[in-house]
Design a protein around this nucleic acid. Structure first.
Length: 291
DNA sequence: TGGATTTGACCTGC
DNA sequence: GCAGGTCAAATCCA
C-alpha cells in the first residue's frame, strides 16, 4: 500500500503538460483554469503597480510588497505554463519534432504505436500532470545524453487504461535554469482518474523552488521564506481549486532526486492535506506580522 | 512481505 | 542490423 503511493509518479503535481491526454471535459476545465490564471496574473500586475504607487518611499513596506507581488506574479507564470498556458517554460513542442532530444533517431519508428497521435511537451515538471504513472522501462537513446523513461498509467492493470508517456531530459537545458524535460504522451486515459480536483497538486513545488517544510519533533517549522512561499502556494492552490485550499507541504513530484527515476512519492492518492492556511487577506497579514 | 523500480533481454519496425 | 519500445526477473524499500 505504502509502496503504491510511494512509487506511482505523482500525478497530483499535475501539469498541463499532461492534459494532452486528458479527457475532453478535463481539457475544458484546464482551459478555464489557464484563463483564470491569466486573469489573476493580469490583476496582480495591476495590483502591483497600484501598491507600489501607494507605498512609494516607504522603504521596507515597499520592498516587501514588491517582492511578494513579484513572487505572486512569478507563481502565476509558472502555474500558467505548467497548465499548458501560453507562457513559457512549458511549451508544446512543434509538430515537426525539431526538439533536440526529442527526435534523435525516432521518426520512422514512431509508427509502432499504431498511429496513435502523440502530444509532445517540454516542461520542467514532467512527473506532475494530474495522473498517476508507473514506470515500466528506461532506455538510452542514441544521440542523447539522457535516458528516456517509459511510464504507463497507474491504473493500467486495474482499469485497463492504455495511457503512456515518455519522459526524457532535454539536452539543451541550460545549466543555470530549470531542467526541462520532453514528455511524449501516448494513448488517451480511459481511467478517468484525473478530476478537476487533481489540479490542486498541479503545482510542482520542487520545480518552482519551493523549499520543503522542516519537521522538528512533529511540529512543522517554517522559515520566513518558506512561510511566505507557503502562503503564495496556498493562495495559488485556492485559485486552482476554488474554495478548498491545500498545503504545498505535500510536495509531491518525483523529480528523480533519489535516482529512482521520476517515480514520485505519491500519486493521486497524495495526501492532499487540507490546510488552515486558506488564504485571505487577513491571514496574510497575520503571517507577515509573525514574520 | 508486497509492491514498485531497475535493467538486461526480447520483440518489432525500418 | 540497428534502434526504439516493452517485458519480466532481480532488486530495493517501507
Amino acid at each position: 500500500m505504502q509502496t503504491q503511493s510511494r512509487s506511482i509518479v505523482n500525478a497530483n503535481g499535475g501539469a498541463a503538460t499532461g492534459f494532452g491526454s486528458a479527457p475532453a471535459v478535463d481539457e475544458q476545465y484546464y482551459e478555464a483554469v489557464v484563463r483564470e490564471l491569466a486573469r489573476g496574473h493580469e490583476l496582480t500586475g495591476e495590483l502591483q503597480a497600484e501598491l507600489l504607487r501607494v507605498l512609494r518611499g516607504q522603504g521596507q513596506a515597499e520592498a516587501t510588497a514588491a517582492f511578494i507581488l513579484g513572487e505572486v506574479s512569478r507563481a502565476f507564470t509558472v502555474c500558467t505554463s505548467i497548465m499548458g498556458g501560453s507562457s513559457t517554460p512549458a511549451v508544446t513542442a512543434p509538430a515537426d519534432g525539431t526538439l533536440a532530444a526529442a527526435t534523435a533517431g525516432e521518426g520512422a519508428r514512431r509508427a509502432k504505436e499504431d498511429g496513435v497521435p502523440r502530444k509532445r511537451t517540454v516542461t520542467p515538471s514532467p512527473y506532475s500532470d494530474g495522473y498517476q504513472w508507473r514506470k515500466y522501462g528506461q532506455k538510452r537513446i542514441i544521440g542523447t545524453n539522457f535516458p528516456r523513461c517509459y511510464y504507463r498509467c497507474g491504473y493500467h492493470r486495474e482499469r485497463g487504461c492504455r495511457a503512456t508517456k515518455q519522459v526524457q531530459e532535454e539536452q539543451h537545458s541550460n545549466a543555470g535554469g530549470p531542467r526541462m524535460y520532453l514528455v511524449i504522451y501516448g494513448h488517451e486515459h480511459t481511467c478517468h482518474r484525473a478530476s478537476p480536483t487533481a489540479a490542486v497538486g498541479l503545482l510542482d513545488f520542487s520545480a518552482v523552488g519551493l523549499p520543503r517544510q522542516q519537521e522538528q519533533g512533529g511540529v512543522v517549522q517554517l522559515s520566513k521564506e518558506e512561510l511566505e512561499q507557503q502562503v503564495l502556494v496556498s493562495s495559488l492552490a485556492c485559485v486552482l481549486q476554488g474554495s478548498q485550499c491545500y498545503s504545498g507541504g505535500g510536495s509531491q513530484e518525483g523529480s528523480s532526486s533519489q535516482g529512482r527515476t521520476g517515480a514520485g512519492e505519491d500519486g493521486g492518492s497524495a495526501p492532499a492535506v487540507p490546510v488552515e492556511t486558506s488564504l485571505d487577506v487577513m491571514d496574510y497579514y497575520d503571517v507577515t506580522d509573525t514574520l
